[in-house]
Amino acid sequence: MKMAVFWGCRILTSQYAYEMSVRQVFPKLGVELVDLREATCCGDPVKSINIFAADYLAARALALANLTGSTDLLIPCNRCHFTISEAKHRMEINEKLHLKIGELLTEEGLEYDPNIKIWHIIDLLHDAVGLEKIKETVKKPFRGLKLASHTGCQVIRYSDLGRVDDAENPRKLDELINMLGAETVDYSEKLDCCGAALTYSHQDAALSLAGSKIKALQGLNVDALVVCCPACQMMFDSEQKDAGTAVGAKLDLPVLYYTQLLGLALDIEAEKLGLHLNQSLVDKLLTKIPA
């Protein structure tokens, strides 16, 4: 299976562990990844300024994916996944918008062919690669680990757009974790937002949101929180110390990407999965995994 990849901004500029682990695990599961050339922002922060310009950026990403010859595009970031999916939808229902954006793309010699399927790591792993295949490929299953999942907001909402899992009761990430032998917990804060978008305007509120969720999870004695979006990872992992200050609690919960966890179960070295880059205390988790 050949898959073009749109990384977006955050993964390429700071969330390197996601990129490293995605690049490591997918080829082992029979998915060949092809990078886009000269990719730009998906348009997410631009929506607040000018929705049309944001749609143009999203369409540009799709046009670049068309250039690779693949009709499948993997977008590992929840926010990019939503922005591009929604722009694609808007162009489908609004011919005038489609034509106007098409004209702009032509100026760069680009053309957008709507015949492209958008994937996230959740549905790519769960629905295309398949749970069974993942289970078979696992070399070092985890025993006795209790993990919490955070699927995030924009990859599951809103359902009319066609999202990767149920908007109110997402289960796929949990099932993917279970395939690696670990247990998952249900918790009442599961759907709480990481707050990342508020870092643009209300940093304190953003940190409070992230901090409250981690604080609640610490109370449940989970071994780690598993995420699948660079914005969520930024809030729960990179900013965990400040999030703790914001909620007046000492936070020390390991947080990692699902692709890092999967990589460990596939017996890939921690460093190749970028686990040395996580800011939270993932060592605490690693010592619980037999070498």
Binding site: L12, T13, S14, T40, C41, P45, V46, I49, S201
Partner: peptide
């Protein structure tokens, strides 16, 4: 921060600057 993201995109295509970790 929104205006900065836009000017960043105009400059090099991405909304954020490349960071060292």
């Amino acid at each position: 921060a929104y205006l900065k993201a836009v000017s960043q995109i105009l400059e090099n295509g991405l909304s954020q600057t490349i960071q060292k970790i």
